[in-house]
Design a binder for these strands. Sequence first.
DNA 1: AGTCCACAGGAAGGGCAGGCGA
DNA 2: TCGCCTGCCCTTCCTGTGGACT
Length: 394
Amino acid sequence: MEKNIFSEYLNKPSLFKNKDVLSVSFIPEKIPHRDNEIKQIVNVLSPVLKGHATSNIFIYGKTGTGKTICMKFVLDELKKIIQDDNKIKSIYINCKMKKVADTEYRLLAYLLRSFGENVPDTGLPTDVLYRKFFKLLDNEKQNIIIVLDEIDALVKKIGDEFLYNLTRVDSELKKGKLTIVGISNDLSFTDNIDSRVKSSLGEEELIFPPYNALELRDILLERSKEGFVEGCIDESVINKCSALAAQEHGDARRALDLLRVAGEIAERTNSKKITEKHVDLAEEKIDLDRVTEIVKNQPRQSQAVLFSIIKTNNEKIMTGDVFDNYREICKNNGLKILTQRRVSDLIAELDMLGIVTTKVISKGRYGRTREISLAIENKVLDRVKKILKENFGE
DNA sequence: AGTCCACAGGAAGGGCAGGCGA
DNA sequence: TCGCCTGCCCTTCCTGTGGACT
């Protein structure tokens, strides 16, 4: 056989049987430890099969508790059983997806597009979109199920008015019927929304508890059976992934990521087996990738602020110090100097991204300010520093 | 008891890009 | 072409505030 630079890869035995199974977006045939939750969703949604109206549902639970996967699973099953698929339509939207559904306009545009309607990215008044949408819904006798994932993020950003509009529509429709399923990571989410919305959206409430280490273990065992080649993974590795993820509020997503990345690392280092050490490396790598990805994708102004925070290099950094350093950085790089108000917002954004942690403190006579500290590990920090130094020529 | 620092963070709105329909 | 609409980034102006200092 002719030598090709890729032949080494092709000839190397892989540890993975089917890597997709180990990704978070994969929907398995059965979902361990969520039978009850699925049954409840099914009970609420079943009436659509006979063309009846259903209650709206609200699902709570932290990340990686299986909310999304259960919902998608149910929708898939529903699709399988529908005979005349024109009468029931389900739309799944992740509200956190940037540039897709993170504003009222975009959300509506997305909904309209999923009906095959052509909508411009911007330009039309929002009420025109609403009207178009209502008309589409009432076009024929049909049941529409809209799943709004991470709805708390959207409401935090644009308020709850759109929810009010959507829920109110349902009562005005003559032919179509609308069911809204809201999925939220934030358990206290409904505290700050309109009570009218609360009562109509929360007709049925469902709470997904976090998985414990044993349940995570079952999930991982199930997936690794399909995902990995037999015998290349010990139970101790799976136990370790479950234990680590259980510490992090029982996040199955985290557990799967750890397992998959550990496998990738093992494979790359030509190891025949995945060991606990690979899990440690995976934990490190996931963190590194996440942070560097965020930093690289930040706009330049935001990077300058972060660079300023890193350069200030104190245990406890104050907004004022950051701003002073930031001005220097801007001057040296020909960057426009933004106002302190804006920089303050940029710092708050970095906090939200988990790159820094901030706390508002009062120093009495010496004012009130944010106390800022970096929230990244040393190893990752070095990498971030390198990126920023390259960007700002130092 | 009152002052006053050094900001936080809300509200309003300016200006621009992208895009509509007429 | 114009007038209008939205999103985004940003500025201006503003009110609020915990607690060390006087």
